[in-house]
Design a protein around this nucleic acid. Structure first.
Lengths: 176, 176
DNA sequence: GCCATCATGTAATTAGTTACATGATTAG
DNA sequence: CTAATCATGTAACTAATTACATGATGGC
């Protein structure tokens, strides 16, 4: 049972900084959402399993019966092992990808409508990523995930260019 | 219940050309695998549901009790509706993405090992995509999915550049 | 006092993977 | 004749989503 990226995503987020289950749910949507997502109903049970496996531990209990978890040495070792010794199974699932694939089977009119939607979506994504980048840049010391945000922006740019090309090729009257 | 990209991926593949369930399983791995994947154990039940919903129909029965499915007008309409009228839920899941995210929490030595693995993986992916592109280019008429293969290659190139930058920044003795 | 948000959990359902199972056809 | 591939299905399990449920704290 080597796949299971959720486990490693959680460990990785905790490796940066200890957090509560609630924090983790937020970080999934705010930082790693381009790669993986998990809601709290998945996170709490996973934290319990990781704790049972000695990979995370409770390092503090706060208000509202909150528990802050931190990664242990065992957890770090598991991360290291997974990253350097396992051959990735490479689960790949992107609804956006499916939609872009399907553009080809629409007639020109519908394709234009869909392309406009996709361009708008990518623009909002770029803004979301840029906001994250800006927030990171305001912090004093270099943030570990800054580089992947940059990658996201680059990929977004290439994809948006592609969408615009497709859009231009579908222009009705003046195909230029 | 508007998500469910599997349904639309199947409809889209059938929109290009009728196929058996077996064919579809192959096409998932060979063409759309960057966006979505499904094995035959998921495809056959989905075909049955689509048939019950009148979105696909059996257009031929061949050897080995094989049935060839084709998309119906209802199926086309559903595709059109989903692509132009629904707001994408944007399921996004990439184990590769998780791994790249986690690079930041590894120490330099392990990071180099992981980066080398990732660069090798992206290189093999580029070759796989290029092979698909070449196969498409040999066909007489323009293939609907040629453009998305091209997009895949472009994105791969940007990502590989990023990996190499990261790798260079982790050089041990001679950090340039 | 009340509303937003923090915080944690479980239950029910649906989606996806892996394993089991079977048999037909074709190429060598 | 026999191995590879074509072809279809079901069963068992795991992962993920959505819905249900509860309660604490802090700001207004």
């Amino acid at each position: 049972m080597d796949p299971m990226s959720l486990r490693h995503a959680v460990l990785g987020l905790l490796a940066v900084e200890p957090a509560t289950g609630y924090d983790l749910a937020q970080r999934f949507t705010k930082s790693i959402s381009n790669a993986w997502h998990a809601g709290h109903s998945q996170i709490y049970p996973e934290l319990a399993r990781l704790q049972a496996a000695g990979m995370v531990e409770v390092v503090g209990e706060g208000a509202r019966r909150s528990r802050t978890f931190a990664i242990t040495d065992g957890g770090h070792e598991e991360l290291r092992r997974w990253m350097t010794e396992t051959e990735a199974s490479r689960t790949q699932r992107s609804e956006t990808g499916v939609r872009w694939f399907l553009l080809a089977v629409l007639d020109p009119e519908d394709r234009r409508i869909a392309l406009d939607q996709e361009i708008a979506f990518m623009t909002s994504e770029a803004q979301r990523l840029q906001a994250i980048a800006d927030a990171i840049d305001e912090t004093p010391d270099p943030h570990p995930f800054r580089a992947t945000v940059d990658l996201g922006l680059r990929v977004n740019a290439v994809m948006t260019d592609w969408l615009r090309e497709q859009r231009a090729a579908t222009e009705p009257d003046r195909p230029r």
